[in-house]
């Protein structure tokens, strides 16, 4: 899909509206990390992912693994925009029997390739998908979205080491560096020091961008697509809750729903008219 920067920004804005609506309807969920990742996932799906929404299990599709699976509203909103599911399906978020389970789940939702919910697992799974593609002599890629708090899990580094050892160049990671995790700022919970240097030291190609500047996002995705001799990671500096003023940079909205008044304010800020 060839979308202009302004069209991508509009794609992401519509997704932001859906994210806030989903969490508001459910009165539960994770808006902060969904809003921080959304510009990245929007651009990835709208301009890079080789997928067929009408054929979600097409064997040679690129895989997208939302390892930070609690940020599911962001992914569901994108899947709806892409046509994997309907906008009506978004009403099933956190509802019994719904496609949109609390955490993204490959058994429940078309277009989802990984059953997430436990942090630190997606990179290894993506590594397996990427290795399978290599065995198949396929051009398909595995894109993995990690949270920054998530990389405190030790198994992430097992996977990072293995991916570099096996030179798995079709494994491409986006790190949502929004600086906040469940209980507090990452800096307070577990300092991570020089994150780019850590990935470089593990043998990865690294690039940093502003994860809300769509031109930078596109150049970051160019970098991931162009790096094929080793695994690559795009460290996207983002703002938790981006786009909704009272959620921005606010640890309270990692996993909390807006009330009626806050919902109305959020819709107004996102330029959405609610009847």
């Amino acid at each position: 899909m060839a979308l202009s920067i302004s069209e991508l920004e509009e794609f992401a804005r519509k997704c932001r509206v859906e994210i806030v609506k989903m969490v508001y309807r459910a009165q539960a969920g994770h808006p902060g990390g969904s809003l921080s990742e959304i510009d990245l996932i929007s651009a990835l799906y709208a301009t890079r992912m080789r997928v067929r929404p009408d054929q979600p299990k097409w064997e040679d599709r690129d895989r997208f693994i939302l390892s930070k699976g609690h940020a599911s509203p962001g992914m569901y909103a994108v899947l709806a925009e892409m046509g994997f599911i309907t906008h009506e399906d978004l009403h099933s978020y956190r509802v019994l029997g719904g496609k949109c389970q609390g955490h993204v789940d490959m058994k429940w939702c078309p277009g989802v390739d990984f059953s997430a919910g436990s942090l630190g697992m997606g990179l290894s799974f993506g590594l397996g998908c990427a290795m399978a593609a290599r065995l198949d002599n396929s051009e398909r890629r595995a894109f993995v979205m990690l949270g920054d708090g998530e990389i405190q899990e030790g198994s992430v580094w097992e996977a990072a080491m293995a991916a570099a050892h096996h030179e798995v160049g079709n494994l491409k990671v986006i790190l949502d560096r929004n600086r906040i995790q469940n209980d507090d700022f990452c800096e307070a919970q577990m300092r991570m020091f020089d994150i780019p240097a850590k990935w470089r030291a593990f043998g990865w190609e690294v690039k940093e961008i502003d994860g809300h500047n769509m031109e930078e996002v596109m150049s970051g995705l160019d970098f991931l697509e162009a790096t094929n001799d080793k695994p690559s990671i795009l460290i996207a500096h983002t703002i938790k809750g981006a786009g909704v003023s009272f959620m921005e940079d606010n640890p309270a909205f990692h996993g909390a729903a807006p009330n009626d008044e806050q919902f109305a304010q959020a819709m107004a800020e996102l330029g959405e008219v609610v009847a």
């Binding site: 998908c129 990427a130 290795m131 030790g154 293995a162």
Partner: peptide, 21 residues
């Protein structure tokens, strides 16, 4: 695939391979 001394990664790399046929 050698996964080094890393059982957690081994299990999930296996899951990714299984999900890919």
């Amino acid at each position: 695939f050698s996964c080094g001394i890393g059982e957690q990664n081994m299990l999930l790399t296996g899951a990714g391979l299984a999900a890919s046929g």
